[in-house]
Amino acid sequence: MGLLDKARQRSPWLIHYDCGSCNGCDIELLSCLTPLYDVERFGIVNVGDPKQADILVVTGSVNQQNKSVLKNIYDQMPEPKVVVAVGVCACTGGIFRDCYNVVGGIDKVLPVDVYVPGCPARPEQIIDGIKLAIDKLAQKDVVKEEG
């Protein structure tokens, strides 16, 4: 494992987007930052800026209104990047699946790398999922896009 890969594994910055969650998963996600779980010890930082993020964590199901927003945030993130779907809503649409405006899980819009089911997902699960995502992140290479 090269130094770069190691650095990438040790410094995953994540951005959290709440697509249409009931806030249950959001609260669980935020509790990961609290002293009890403290994800910063893995170098994980919760950033607000997709341009500086490596991992997109999405909670809640996608609906027609925020589909484009989700895509937009994803597009602004520089390669390499991974997506984690937290909660059954984000995985499949969950209990909101049949709503008139719901598109479904976020994999309808984005390529999802890790699914973390649960309603809500427990912090331990979330951390575990993010750890999986970090491993995937290290395997990805910078996709060079000529701009």
């Binding site: 130094l3 770069l4 190691k6 650095a7 990438r8 040790r10 410094s11 609290t34 002293p35 403290d38 910063e40 010890r41 893995f42 170098g43 341009k51 490596d54 602004q76 520089p78 390669e79 390499p80 910078v142 996709v143 060079k144 896009e145």
Partner: peptide, 28 residues
Amino acid sequence: TARLQGRYGPPILQPFYDVLKLFSKQRI
């Protein structure tokens, strides 16, 4: 800062990991 907030905190070398990682990212 982490300790002051009752957390364990990242390793001391964290800024270097961050910078290295940033260097390896796509340039936007």
